[in-house]
Design a protein around this nucleic acid. Structure first.
Lengths: 212, 212
DNA sequence: TTTAATACTACCCAAATGGGTGGAGGGACT
DNA sequence: AGTCCCTCCACCCATTTGGGTAGTATTAAA
């Protein structure tokens, strides 16, 4: 029996979910809330297996609700159920601790299946949501191959890598068997090319643009 | 009609896939290969909609094959079909350009459905694979909440953020309306706590550990 | 072959940074 | 009331770094 708790501000939908879950063998809706705040208060006593959450809520933001819930129960399985398919919300929810992301047009049978999958260690989401997550992985690659990668010479990339490893000019010089003056010379050129003026800026840019 | 190409070294499985795909309305297996190399050569002429790839291949590595194929057709939809569920392989394949990841125990009906989803802009994968991808997102958070996050005071995190934004001590001091000496003081403490000795090291650590 | 790009070295100077010491004020907890 | 922690500021000093200028060697392209 999977114990499900629901947070959803729309009364109709919330009741519908409760009926659906309670009416299915193997599932039980042990609580339903219209706000995060009330859910958080009673979360400890209830100890649900899966928390089904809307994230377009009045009052406390759903994302924040996920974070809070995860603080109380780090291992709690949280499924987001929403109408939003914006990238930002998806990533925020997943980073906050949601383990699955469902859109509201998901048919009831799929919804129940998703709850079951989540309960068993899976991460149910529609394949379109999944694509957005995957795209996120590939962004790095794309940025580096198209962007500032090629403006640096191989030697310059080597020098810059040294910095990202956390080395000082002196250490970089020694490891490459060149003078520290040469390292400084290269960095001056690197800075010009990247339009930065300090180590830290260069490191940030190198990491963000995937130059390393 | 979705044009599918298959790369799979096991003759039995390859033929099985071909029969399955060709035998289903709306799908056509326009080519099947046992090696990446031969696939790459004829890829341009064939122009398939979806490429179904094994990644445990003799000869060229499947991951490498994905990269090469993506070079020729950056928009090609590639689905990985494999027996491996190791994290590393999943991430490598996805970063290389695969848009979906299926395990070989996937039943034929699900396989066809997955091809269709991929063709229509989705990223089919089993919910267990999805969970691993999601976990990757949350690693950052976990590392920070359990690790070095809490050893820094809120003010120190604020100061460190300024550095990661690419600001100098002076700019950080001005933006926080405090003396540059105070900024320096905080950084000395931050360095001690993070066990680093320079800006760049601190920036790298801050980013890697998700302190920002 | 001339030219350009890259890699390398050196010296100069001013500014920024790393590190040590000391001290002041406020809030939280005992 | 005392203590601890966080925040804040200041002065000292040695080193590192950012930026400018100049020059040589090697290699690849024009």
């Amino acid at each position: 029996m999977i114990k499900v708790a629901v947070v959803e501000d729309n009364d109709t939908i919330r009741e519908g979910l409760k009926v659906l879950i309670d009416g299915t063998a193997g599932y039980s809706c042990i609580a339903s809330y219209s706000k995060c705040e009330t859910m958080l208060k009673s979360l400890e006593k209830l100890n649900p297996d899966v928390l089904l959450m809307d994230i377009g809520l009045p009052g406390m933001n759903g994302i924040e609700g996920i974070k809070q819930a995860k603080k109380i129960f780090p291992d709690l399985t949280i499924l987001v159920l929403t109408v939003y398919e914006e990238n930002d919300l998806i990533f925020e929810a997943l980073c906050a601790g949601a383990c699955g992301y469902l859109v509201k047009k998901t048919p009831p049978s799929k919804l129940l299946e998703a709850i079951n999958e989540a309960y068993n260690g899976g991460s149910p989401m529609s394949s379109h949501i999944a694509r957005k997550v995957i795209d996120f992985f590939q962004q790095k690659k794309q940025a580096s191959s198209s962007g500032s990668q090629n403006i640096l010479t191989p030697r310059e990339r080597e020098i810059l890598s040294g910095l990202v490893e956390g080395n000082s000019f002196k250490v970089i010089a020694d490891s490459l068997f060149i003078s520290i003056e040469t390292v400084r010379f290269h960095f001056r050129n690197i800075y010009k090319k990247l339009h930065v003026h300090s180590q830290s800026e260069a490191v940030v840019k190198a990491i963000k643009e995937g130059l390393v």
